[in-house]
Write a protein that binds this DNA or RNA. Sequence first.
DNA 1: CATGAATGAGGCTTCATTCAT
DNA 2: AATGAATGAAGCCTCATTCAT
Lengths: 196, 196, 196, 196
Amino acid sequence: MAERGYAGTSISAITRDCGLPASSIYWHFSNKQGLLAAVMERAAERWLSQFRADSKQRALGDRTLGGMLARAAPEIGAPPTEFLRLLILLALERRDGDSETLETIRRVRLRALELIREAIFETFRSAGEGDAGRIADTCSVFVLTFGEGLFVGQQIDPGIDMNGLTRQLEQAVLALGREQLQSSSSQAGSARETGA
Amino acid sequence: MAERGYAGTSISAITRDCGLPASSIYWHFSNKQGLLAAVMERAAERWLSQFRADSKQRALGDRTLGGMLARAAPEIGAPPTEFLRLLILLALERRDGDSETLETIRRVRLRALELIREAIFETFRSAGEGDAGRIADTCSVFVLTFGEGLFVGQQIDPGIDMNGLTRQLEQAVLALGREQLQSSSSQAGSARETGA
Amino acid sequence: MAERGYAGTSISAITRDCGLPASSIYWHFSNKQGLLAAVMERAAERWLSQFRADSKQRALGDRTLGGMLARAAPEIGAPPTEFLRLLILLALERRDGDSETLETIRRVRLRALELIREAIFETFRSAGEGDAGRIADTCSVFVLTFGEGLFVGQQIDPGIDMNGLTRQLEQAVLALGREQLQSSSSQAGSARETGA
Amino acid sequence: MAERGYAGTSISAITRDCGLPASSIYWHFSNKQGLLAAVMERAAERWLSQFRADSKQRALGDRTLGGMLARAAPEIGAPPTEFLRLLILLALERRDGDSETLETIRRVRLRALELIREAIFETFRSAGEGDAGRIADTCSVFVLTFGEGLFVGQQIDPGIDMNGLTRQLEQAVLALGREQLQSSSSQAGSARETGA
DNA sequence: CATGAATGAGGCTTCATTCAT
DNA sequence: AATGAATGAAGCCTCATTCAT
């Protein structure tokens, strides 16, 4: 489904790939739609648990945005992100009665957002937890959005400069963060002055 | 097709929507794939000519990245960008013998890249044409990538803060440009110093 | 369908019998259900027109109940009444969303009732049109009910004495009619006496 | 099966209704046809034993045709006669290799015929056992046939006047019986005369 | 350029049945 | 006696496509 879309993936194609006859598939899943739901649930689950495992290792390593992006860059377009294609494909396909799929997609997306948020927070931690938190809030969607763009761009043109772009993204977030720090400190300054 | 993908859009569905019998469709197009090709060609054409018309009006208005983004933001997700959904959907769908579609998509994408390049160039023109050109080269893919991400994000969650994100994008590009200017000038300076 | 019921009649069985591929059948009819509707409509139409044609010939012949039954007896269970099996079978099968079928069945049944009514009326015409009409009203459902029973009985045991039973039916109706005449005349008589 | 016919009743539908998995059904019955056979056997058994029980009570009550019909009228179309629908449905369905079903149906039908015979005999007992027996022989099939018609009619139009029709049936049988008595007595008379 | 009809392949799903546990 | 799983055939229907008019 991640390759051909929902309609383009026939049950018989699945039987060819998994060996079981179609009727056996229907013993395990109620529907083609039900199969899709199960696939998405499992993909999300697997992705999440993998990142949880990573996080423990990361405890010793680089937990900033830069480190995260450096780890993510080579994976985009590679097998571990095939799952992303399924998500985006299904998000773009407007099938008829299918709010459940979009729901799952949103759930997974929120999980990604949290991960990004933590990385940004870590990056700006030295500026104080309050500011770091605010910057993380402001910029996490920005990073996620760019990441999705990266994926799509890589699908269209596999030869894009993934490392260059992720480096630019890091720079951009650093700059956005700094600007936010300045404006907040100047606000604080003016607030102090006003308070005086 | 922009709604259901290639496989999900049946000839008979088109028949239902356009009133003509299927055989008439086959008089106009060689086959389903040919119809898709024609649709993409026409959509690209229309999109291009619209932007050409826009460019003339823009001659008097704001031609910088900021102006461009301000104009583009409300259109994302609206009818004029349905065409974008078709493009991205087809780019993600990995159909069997279909390099032609990807070719068209890439062509259109390059056109968009040029537009973005010009806007960035205009934004940094005051820094000199050479630097502006170099910045435009560096940042245009960044902007396009983010734009594609914006589109996808908007499909998943129509309630995202489109204006906030485009403003962040503008800030990010300005920052990236400034840094590039500084490094090039310091490079130039150090070059001069070294040269001395 | 008249032989195997609705569910027992597969589309592919029909294709085997008619030569056309299933997809062609689906060009002509929307559904399996739609096909059934068309079949019933046509069968009813044909049956009706045949009886209309018969009626004109009958104008010269025996139009009483006895004549009618004599003509009908040998046809029960034979090809011209295969159509009846379809009707009764579908009336007994309680399929899910299918009121239309029952509707058609009732329409056809009403037509049969009219025919029977006329024959009874003709039989008792000599007793005056008012009484003949009243007897026809009272006894037509009786005759139709018995007719349906005859059909079912013949399906279960093809060897039943069809002629004997139809003769009994005729006798029964004659008796029922006579009794009704007596009671109405005695009523009239008592009414007269009372009136005096 | 009484509702949807043999083909229209799937094993999995039975599974849904009875809770047991299909494989358990196949432990109890050899196959679908075997299940049908068992169902019919049991339904016939139950129906018979119910009538046996009734007969004992009836010993004190009205054992004539009128009494029987009065008891039967309200039951037609109600749960106790669902079994009748199964019988008639299967009698009309012409399945391939299935003489056994028809056999059972005929057996049950003969039992019903006996019951009717007794009731008619009781009704005419006062005319002498010989005549009563002959009338019962002649009229029982007539009554059974009409009963089957009543059932079918009630399926098509649940609003028919069941009581009116059963009363007409009683009258009809009384009339048929009387006529038979007269003809036999006149025959006897003429025989005597002729013999003289 | 339009249209009604046809067609074979294949779509999703359910069928009756079996088997190992 | 029950159950989860499997299986090939067949169910209804839609697919893309073609053809004669």
